[in-house]
Structure formats: C-alpha cells, structure tokens
C-alpha cells in the first residue's frame, strides 16, 4: 500500500486564509497521495469550506503554498478546475434534464471529444444498469440513483481528483455501499478522492482522515490509528473528543 500512495497529488504547506482579523484556515500542512480516499472532517465553522475553495481554485490563500494535481493554487487555478471533479449532495444534476442530457452537458463543459463522450456514456450507463432509463428525467429517478449518477458524471472527464461533499446522506445502506463501490473503482483507475462530511460513519470508509478544529488540523491518520490513539470505538467518538475540547 505504501508504494501506491507515494505520489502526492495534493501538497499543502503552511496554507493560511484570513478574513480581516479572523483566521479561518491556520497553517495547514498535509499531503494526499494518488488513489487515496482522503477524509476532510470538521465541525461547522472549522474552516473546511474555506480550505476546499482554495484547493478547488476558487479562492486564493493569504499565505502558504498548495499544489493540486501539480498546479499552483495562486497562478494556475484554471488548470486546477479542469483537472478536478466535484459532487455535493445539495447540487449535482439538473432535475429537468434527462440522464443522458446531463451526461452530455457535463462532457461538453469539460470539452470532451464526442466519440470519447459517447463511449464513456455507454460504459457508464451499462455499469450503473441505467441504459434503458437513459431518457428519464432526473427528477423521476430515486435519490440513490441520482447520487451514483452524480458521482459517475463528476468523474466522466477522468479528473485527477474528485471532491465529494457529504456524498451519501440519506440513502439506504445498500445503495450507500454500492456508492462506495463506485468510489473504490475510481481509485483503482488512479483517481484521488477527497471527501468532506458531517457523518463520521462515512469517515470509516476513508484511507486517511484529517479533523479540523478552529482552522487547524487537530489530527490526521488512518481511521484505525485514530481510534486507537484516542481509545475510541468509532470515528464519531474521536471527532467529539477533538471538536468538543475547546
């Protein structure tokens, strides 16, 4: 496993972001390796969103450095955007468009050649067992399907990194595990997965997890090691010990 994660796809050094006198992100340092599932946790207001915006090329840091997929977060934000995918629970697909229209739309945005887009669309629909529903509107399909589809669309252009925001909230546990199957397939072809969530049981699926408290990373390790270190049965207990310490 060690070998597999040697290449850093995200490098963060001393990353800091201030809003006036308030330091939202305070000297973050971490690496994410290729094909890693990296959990990025923190309570509301801990600074997660601010940090992610920087990593997605949507906001500039006040201090420090970061490279995402080999691109600099100050100067190469457009390159970053082309090389990442993003999926959140609150927004993912257009409800009034069909499955296949959504796929075509996203493929178009990322400038995928038509033949490649067609090939990947067929492959994706086949994999998701949705081929015969390709012309259904998004609003007509179950939530679990939407989430699986949204993830597949977010990785359609084979980004180097895909950012997931609370990806499996509210779905039934079987659908959720099927969703994680898709994630594990994605890392198998070299995609790196960066997950933020409030739900600590999602953290158990990650290879490594960082926990932000008041703008700083308070802990970073594998779920097993964290549970051991904090003498906790679950990631939820680890999280509460750290986040409630204030």
């Amino acid at each position: 496993m060690v070998d597999k994660y040697q290449n850093s796809i995200i490098k963060v050094r001393g990353l800091t972001k201030r809003f006036g006198k308030f330091t939202a992100v305070d000297n973050l340092n971490f690496d994410v390796s290729q094909s890693e599932i990296f959990g990025f946790l923190g309570a509301n207001g801990a600074g997660k969103t601010t940090a992610i915006k920087i990593l997605c090329g949507l906001s500039s840091p006040s201090e420090g450095n970061a490279e995402v997929a080999g691109f600099d977060v100050y100067k190469q934000t457009e390159n970053i955007k082309k090389n990442i995918g993003y999926m959140s629970q609150s927004f993912s697909l257009y409800e009034d468009m069909t499955i296949v229209e959504n796929i075509r739309f996203y493929g178009g945005i990322y400038g995928m050649p038509l033949t490649l887009l067609k090939e990947r669309t067929n492959h994706m629909l086949n994999r998701l067992k949705m081929t015969e529903y390709a012309n259904k509107l998004i609003k007509e399909i179950p939530l679990g399907w939407k989430q699986k589809l949204a993830f597949s669309v977010a990785t359609l252009h084979r980004p180097k990194i895909v950012f997931l925001d609370e990806p499996t909230g509210g779905v039934d546990p079987i659908t959720r595990r099927q969703f994680w199957d898709l994630i594990y397939e994605a890392i198998d072809i070299g995609i790196t997965v960066f997950v933020t969530t409030h739900y600590m049981d999602e953290a158990e699926y990650c290879h490594r997890v960082s926990i932000m408290v008041d703008g700083k990373i308070a802990a970073l390790d594998t779920p097993d090691n964290l549970k051991q270190q904090y003498n906790a049965k679950s990631m939820n207990e680890v999280f509460l010990q750290l986040a409630r310490k204030k």
């Binding site: 509301n44 509210g170 409030h198 939820n236 999280f239 509460l240 409630r244």
Partner: peptide, 10 residues
C-alpha cells in the same frame, strides 16, 4: 439532525 455537524448532533 439532518445536515447538522457531529458536535451539534451529540
């Protein structure tokens, strides 16, 4: 507790 962080949930 939907959409609330782990501390608030607790």
């Amino acid at each position: 507790t939907t959409g609330v962080d782990a501390v608030s949930r607790k």
